[in-house]
Simulated assay, not measured.
Amino acid sequence: MDNYINLVKLSVGTETVDGLEAWQTEYRKQLPEGLPRHVTRMWPKREPEVVNGGSIYWVIKGQIQCRQRILRLDEVMGGDGIRRCAIVLEPEIHRTQIAIRRAFQGWRYLKPEDTPPDLSKGRAAEKPLPPELSQALAEIGVI
């Protein structure tokens, strides 16, 4: 899987990784497959690379904090008859090292070499630092 690309997306309205997980758990109950998904208007032109091992990196409170592996892209039709892209995700959320990210609309491609590494399993269970502190530490290159 050396020919893949990731996506980065703001998790609008989410305050924490736990909040994202809770929202997805509730939302998945409404879906026949039970897999989380994010529906977007734009279809990735680099679809083969996205589904070849890519992940969606979630920006929460101005920081990349976690990721989910992308399983596939499904076509869905909105109530307005417009074709949309459902990014179908693996349910497991992997916490990552903090990486500051400015606000943007939609999603962006994220090269593998630009992604923050996953936290080790032991660190993923730690209580996260307050957002202001983790941002300050990330800005000076400590985390």
Rank of each mutant, 00 (worst) to 15 (best):
V51C: 01
M77E: 14
W43R: 15
L35I: 08
I56E: 01
V39F: 01
P91A: 09
E15S: 15
I98P: 03
Q30G: 09
R69A: 13
L73V: 03
C66N: 07
G79S: 14
D80K: 01
K9P: 01
V39D: 08
L31K: 11
E126K: 08
E92W: 07
Q105E: 13
L110W: 07
H94P: 00
P44F: 04
V59S: 09
C85S: 05
I100K: 10
Q135E: 09
S55Q: 07
I87E: 01
P91K: 05
D18V: 00
R28V: 08
Y4D: 01
V17L: 05
I64T: 03
S134D: 06
Q105D: 13
Q63S: 14
T14K: 14
Y27S: 11
I100E: 10
G141R: 03
D118M: 14
P48T: 09
I140D: 07
R102P: 03
V50C: 04
A136G: 08
L129V: 02
V17T: 15
L133Y: 02
I60Q: 02
A103Q: 13
R67G: 07
K45M: 09
V8T: 14
R41C: 05
L10K: 06
H94V: 15
G78A: 12
E90S: 12
P116V: 12
T115W: 02
R108W: 11
E90D: 15
L7P: 07
P116D: 06
R95P: 11
P112I: 09
V17G: 06
I98H: 07
E92L: 13
L129A: 13
E75K: 12
P128D: 02
R37N: 09
Q135D: 02
K61Y: 00
G81H: 06
G54R: 07
T96M: 06
E132N: 08
Q97G: 13
V76K: 12
A138Q: 04
G34N: 09
M77V: 14
W43P: 03
L119M: 11
M42K: 15
L89S: 08
Y4K: 14
I60W: 05
S120N: 11
P36S: 10
P36F: 12
E132K: 10
W43E: 10
I93H: 07
D2S: 12
K61L: 09
